[in-house]
């Protein structure tokens, strides 16, 4: 259980680091962005290692036989989230999109919603091992927050494409960043949906 808690803590840390990264990015503190990107990469690698160790241990020692398939699925799906955040961090660090100040507020809001989705999902995942009712409750909240994230991403896309100053390439580039940030919330919702099913059946 300690390993699983470490895994979940790492995801939360990655989540918090990405918000810091975005704030530093908008302050144009690119050294800090690179530094945070590296930290995220390290934590993501740790997540992979912990997940593999936990999966191997569960199967080798035939632990929790009646729910190990669900736990395995949960860990693998959760592991996609730090992977996506890591990719997003690298995209910001390498592509350095030009985001106008009026859009940055919406970008930060989108990041907040995605971050809230992850925090709720992690809380739900932790409770999957203790109290499944809490898991279902938290996972249902993820869907609500994800809808809010979708609305912000739609507003962002509208604003991006309604701006006459930018060329099509810039618009498409910015839309890409909206989509990859929204993808974090979408992934969280997918994992939450599967967790609801796993929690309901036991």
């Amino acid at each position: 259980m300690d390993s699983i808690n470490n895994f979940l803590d790492n995801i939360l840390n990655i989540n918090n680091l990405f918000k810091k990264l975005l704030e530093s990015y908008f302050k144009k503190n690119f050294d800090e962005v690179e530094n945070i990107t590296n930290q995220i990469s390290d934590l993501e690698s740790q997540c992979d290692k912990i997940r593999r160790d936990v999966e191997r241990k569960i199967y080798q020692e035939t632990l929790i036989p009646d729910m190990r398939g669900d736990v395995l699925g949960m860990l693998e799906n959760l592991d996609k989230i730090p992977g996506q955040i890591q990719a997003n961090a690298h995209s910001f660090n390498t592509e350095k999109p030009v985001i106008e100040s009026e859009l940055s507020k919406n970008f930060l809001q989108l990041c907040d919603y995605a971050s809230e989705c992850i925090a709720l999902l992690i809380e739900g995942s932790r409770n999957f091992f203790i109290d499944k009712k809490v898991t279902i409750e938290k996972c249902l909240q993820v869907s609500k927050i994800e809808s809010k994230a979708d609305k912000v991403s739609t507003v962002l896309k509208k604003n991006i494409f309604s701006n006459e100053k930018n060329g099509l390439a810039t618009k498409v580039h910015l839309r890409y960043f909206v989509e990859i940030m929204d993808e974090v919330a979408n992934l969280s919702e997918d994992v939450a949906d599967r967790l609801i099913i796993s929690s309901s059946k036991n």
Partner: peptide
Amino acid sequence: FKFNVFQID
């Protein structure tokens, strides 16, 4: 006792 699944196991 609010055991987690590994403790229950």
